[in-house]
Amino acid sequence: MTAQENTPRNLVINGDCIEVMQAFGTGSVDFILTDPPYVTRFRDRQGRTVANDDNARWLRPAFAQMHRVLKQGGFCVSFYGWNKVDLFVEAWKAAGFRIVGHLVFRKRYASSARFLRYEHEQAYLLAKGDPVLPARPVPDVLDFPYTGNKLHPTQKPVAALRRLIGAFTQPGDLVLDPLSGSGSTLAAAHLLGRDWLGVELDVAHYQTAGKRMAALQQRDRKAAA
């Protein structure tokens, strides 16, 4: 069985991403796009929290597995918490990733306000090895439409994620989100004709992502009928 055959496609898995990824083949994933817990003990206005956001024990082993399963020359885009950036950079470098770019997602609203009004999200572009430059690089500042966070307390907009997936993958490539939440990365990948694979620890979010992807697949079947 090849590394690619070890790794499922078009599936959402409920489980600990470190344990789940250990079963995936080395170099079997074409692109990773993920929004991990920011290690900030986040709580939204409704009191919702994010699993494992109260500790960083998972950070290094999770990114070590992401680096292993990513193909040589592949990219990973990871959101991060600005006030814990040292922890994230240490984990990325320890895993073997190279930092090759930085992304800012511009909001038209403030997610919170303390010393400043927080009107952006951010992510780093990470590389494994020496990737080929994209044919049409996306800007490093992208719009971030408001999702309403109805499906997840830190729900990301599919439109912004589609821009990234479109820039760094080809149709049929496998896009992995090992911390998939409500499945926004998976939905964006599916809409672009990419294969997708998600892992989510929280049962409720896993179920949300599963229903979301099943609805998209059903829509495609009806359109093809």
Rank of each mutant, 00 (worst) to 15 (best):
67 H>Q: 11
77 V>T: 06
123 A>Y: 02
59 L>P: 08
40 T>A: 13
13 I>G: 00
56 A>W: 01
109 Y>G: 00
83 N>C: 09
207 Q>H: 10
108 R>M: 10
191 L>E: 15
161 L>D: 07
61 P>C: 04
208 T>F: 00
159 A>Q: 14
169 T>I: 03
204 A>F: 05
93 K>I: 14
196 W>K: 09
66 M>A: 15
214 A>F: 05
130 D>F: 08
108 R>F: 09
119 E>I: 12
19 E>C: 03
180 S>N: 13
84 K>V: 14
121 E>P: 02
211 K>V: 01
65 Q>C: 02
56 A>N: 00
5 E>S: 03
10 N>T: 00
95 A>V: 11
151 L>K: 14
124 Y>L: 15
34 T>L: 15
219 R>F: 06
209 A>M: 00
39 V>M: 15
186 L>C: 14
31 F>K: 04
196 W>A: 08
51 A>I: 06
183 G>S: 07
34 T>V: 13
4 Q>W: 03
136 R>N: 12
164 L>K: 04
101 G>P: 08
62 A>R: 05
104 V>C: 12
146 Y>I: 05
51 A>N: 01
107 K>V: 06
80 Y>N: 04
197 L>F: 01
158 V>E: 13
151 L>E: 13
68 R>S: 11
186 L>N: 02
81 G>T: 09
141 V>S: 08
58 W>L: 04
26 T>K: 11
166 G>K: 07
145 P>H: 01
194 R>D: 03
98 R>A: 15
21 M>H: 01
132 V>E: 13
9 R>M: 00
35 D>P: 04
107 K>F: 05
129 G>H: 05
179 L>G: 04
217 Q>S: 03
